[in-house]
Write a protein that binds this DNA or RNA. Sequence first.
DNA 1: CCGACTAATGAAAGCGCTTTTGTCAATTGA
DNA 2: TCAATTGACAAAAGCGCTTTCATTAGTCGG
Lengths: 339, 339
Amino acid sequence: MNLKELARHLGLSQSTVSRALNGYQDVSSDTRERVLAAARRFDYSPNASAHRLATGHSGAIGIVFPSDKDPLLDPLFTDFLSGLTNSAARRQMDILVSASLDTTDASYRRLAQRGSVDAVVLSSPLVEDSRVPLLDKLGIPCVVHGRTKSPRPHAFLDIDNEGAFRQAAELLIGLGHKRIGLVNGDARQAFAVDREAGWRSALLRAGLEAPEMLNGSDIMTDEAGYRLTAGMLDSASPPTAVICSSIFSAVGACRAIRDRGLTIGSDISVIAHDDGITSIRPEAHHPPLTTTFSSIHRAGERIAEIAADLIGGKDPASCQEIWPVDLIFRDSTRPPVSP
Amino acid sequence: MNLKELARHLGLSQSTVSRALNGYQDVSSDTRERVLAAARRFDYSPNASAHRLATGHSGAIGIVFPSDKDPLLDPLFTDFLSGLTNSAARRQMDILVSASLDTTDASYRRLAQRGSVDAVVLSSPLVEDSRVPLLDKLGIPCVVHGRTKSPRPHAFLDIDNEGAFRQAAELLIGLGHKRIGLVNGDARQAFAVDREAGWRSALLRAGLEAPEMLNGSDIMTDEAGYRLTAGMLDSASPPTAVICSSIFSAVGACRAIRDRGLTIGSDISVIAHDDGITSIRPEAHHPPLTTTFSSIHRAGERIAEIAADLIGGKDPASCQEIWPVDLIFRDSTRPPVSP
DNA sequence: CCGACTAATGAAAGCGCTTTTGTCAATTGA
DNA sequence: TCAATTGACAAAAGCGCTTTCATTAGTCGG
């Protein structure tokens, strides 16, 4: 069932039916009713390709997978994508996921030229990310999940990574900790840099040191979390507390602590950043983990809205949001045992 | 830069250029060279919407998120999607992710009518999944990741869940275990039913019981894994081994075991199913976990190929694959302590 | 040397929609 | 009363491709 048939059934012209369907003014409310009823009855919905060709909009938001199997691409992405997709669906938009087989540049360039998407979402930005200026040049709106250095202001939604990790470190300092380890994500990632800055500033502000020994950085997996934490605990002056960038790192960190016969909380305090994914919940741990919390699912939802605004012509410079992060105090943070 | 401009630049007609670009025969190799060179030089790629409208194919494979925030949607999905997308990209196809806001039926129906996708991938099928007959009726090819009951044969790629869990149980039985717990996924899911069947058949075949007490089933999260395992361990006749349906459940199960002062391996044996995601690796655990292994990333890759075949007109009945699952013996499985 | 065929290209129709422009009757104002 | 306005619809022109069909020029066999 297409527009032509529908129009013929109603004894109307295509244009009238089209306008009735799209809520234009110059059509009598009487015929509009009839058209809408018929559309429902015949279960008509306009052909996507034709609509796109006619309007010049693809009705889709793009997101590009970095490479064949990128370790930076973590399971959190599912939650993010779920939020993104749901929110996009509410605005009648789809999410187009494509992979960059050759270079990332080429993928975006192709995406832009073929007009497959109206806007693009950039995940896990690096500190200086070449994708932002590229998309700018290609004239395709983009919203970054996170932040990156860029000559021109770009739309983004980020969480207050620096503030969150400063707060976390301050909490530990307040409890009396003096050597606080950081189990961070990959140092190329923008968020990791911000978190390190938060950790560092809290320590320095309190007159403490932030030695490189305690500044761990790697991909955010269980195994890497174990390795980084183990390295710190086995060093000459081990930390009495660690802050982890992800719940996965935290699982590894906890394992390293327990493996050394130490107890989480009473011996070594642990704080983890929690993105709110359901598969691993910090409050279900023993002891329940103190966390900095921000829902990545909600971020996904909001980013689709921002993308829609951008497509609607909103100025990227006015599409910049930094969300505060909650610090949730649980039982994994206690005063250190006397040195 | 569009086809018309490109043709004008070359002093050729649109049709010739189009045919040259699409590799048709009736164009001289000389002009083909020129056209290809010009296309490269002007960085031309055909407009997606126009191409789709003209051919009637959308060039996209669809996948629908179940609901607003579905607990069944686990982090493994990222890996699956990554494989799917990469493989699709190699065939010049995109992945369209859309969410079902209203009913799932309506989403698929809309997807089909709007012609936004050429085929659909179904994830986490239920034992009897209404989506399969629906898509069949809508005439849109679909390939299921997993299997489901259906009057007509459908295309699918599944792993040998039953065989894997039978093998796992047999390994434990061979070591001398008599009470083996199952920490399974949601019982509505097809794969969970198959895994239970594997577990059960191994036990019965060995003349052992498969009591309901040891047949745990819930979503595959850390927390649920803990809860199910704890329940079994605290029961009147606790198991000496558990088999977990996911690495996440296994993390919870291990925690429950340790919390009770028991040691994994020597006191309670553990086997987990490993989908091969990088964030949590069973071999990095202490002790390294024995696993049934099958890469979900590879499954995603293969499913995109199957979808492409289906679009190309291949018979769904001849697109059915069941992959064997490796049983990887590590240190978490040992003979039980004498009862 | 000529009709029949082939190779290479161009012209034009069509995919299903949106949107501009055109048409016609009914209404309005002085 | 009559030109001017308005309301409701139809006709038709695109959007940028693919593909069918038509049109040349060149080749061949007899």
